[in-house]
Design a protein around this nucleic acid. Structure first.
Lengths: 207, 207
DNA sequence: TTATGTGAACTATTTCACAGCT
DNA sequence: AGCTGTGAAATAGTTCACATAA
């Protein structure tokens, strides 16, 4: 670590780089230049190089970056230990989509538990996990699960967040459009598909 | 428009402000101060004021912002005409979640069409829309639909994007983890839930 | 009083250009 | 020759403090 401060934007891009590297790896490549990687991640080459330079010298001048090594380094930076576990709360359409989402694999984590409050869903097996009653959330940390995904209706989001915090969860990915309040030590990342769609018309000429 | 250049970040926040205003409106309030609104949107009061100031004087000193008027102004800025229409491509779990998502309403658009390539789904009515064969995408612009949401598997994303561009769609919200290539005049906003989840461990101490 | 609107200072991030390895 | 790594310059975005208006 050669710089004291790493931009948040750099951290935001690292998973995207990792995804690009996974694609290149699947194509059988061993190493890649920042120019080539740029085509896959929508960031200019010098930004890619700068981003990596915050953490060390990962490349070889005249050659590029070794894909396997670079991937490993990024995973280490992001704290993506193999077998990182996450839980899902809310097994509706969105939750089911999350459970079925193939994109998590390359980041080395698995959704290990799913919760819902609907008796019709509890006990059902979806993919590898069985849906548990939402009251079982307090067993999470005991099971080594520190992250959770909230995919419940807006009205229930805060209550679920409270349960997760009480259970000791340290990070939350929130899909509900409601801002949820948590203690500062808990990190929340929110995604609201509607707010993203809502700025699209701004960029569309006239209409 | 008093400033020549409006920050992209400001545009990104406008839909969030709109959402906060909708909540306050539901609570029956008529006007709101930047301090109060700040509690709802996770942005500091002075940033809220600065953001609005790029577009005009929307508030009243000593009083605050009229909720109805401010909402209307933001919608105008974002080009959210009432009855803005969007199409959905891919009616799997994720697509179904999008169709059922209640959060679009406040932005004044509706999902007016849905497409899939699965015969078992085509013809089915989900909510207000009937699923159409994906080959019907070329009718979109004729029907006044300029925006589309891609919720298909990664492998199909680029092909769907090509069809949408050919059909004349001007904005795309892309849920697949694949970067899609489109002409510059078409705006793409991408959401990959895995990349967001992947940076959560970075912010979680030790573990 | 109260709360907006904003220039100026500050901080963060991106871009450039090129020195330095392999 | 090719491609990384990085200071320095440029740009973008945030924060502050306060003049200004209701």
């Amino acid at each position: 670590m050669r710089y004291s401060k790493i931009p948040n934007e750099t951290i935001r891009r690292l998973p995207i780089y990792l995804r690009g590297l996974a694609m290149l790896d699947r194509q059988g490549l061993k190493s890649v230049s920042s120019d080539k990687l740029a085509d896959f991640v929508n960031a200019p080459p010098f930004l890619i190089r700068k981003d990596f330079s915050y953490f060390g010298d990962f490349g070889t001048r005249g050659v590029g970056y070794d894909i396997t090594n670079l991937s490993r380094q990024i995973k280490k930076i992001l704290n993506l230990d193999p077998g990182h576990k996450a839980a899902l709360v809310g097994v509706g359409n969105l939750g089911s989509a999350v459970l079925a989402y193939p994109g998590f694999k390359i980041y080395g984590f698995e959704i290990e538990a799913a919760f819902d409050n609907d008796d019709a869903k509890i006990g059902k097996k979806i993919g590898r996990v069985s849906v548990e009653d939402i009251s079982k959330i307090n067993t999470l940390v005991k099971r080594g699960i520190m992250m959770a995904i909230i995919a419940v209706p807006e009205e229930a989001a805060q209550q679920v967040a409270d349960s997760l915090v009480t259970a000791g969860v340290k990070g939350i990915l929130n899909f509900s459009p409601k801002r949820i309040a948590v203690p500062k030590k808990v990190k929340v990342i929110s995604i609201d598909i509607a707010t993203d769609l809502a700025r699209l018309p701004y960029y569309i000429p006239s209409s």
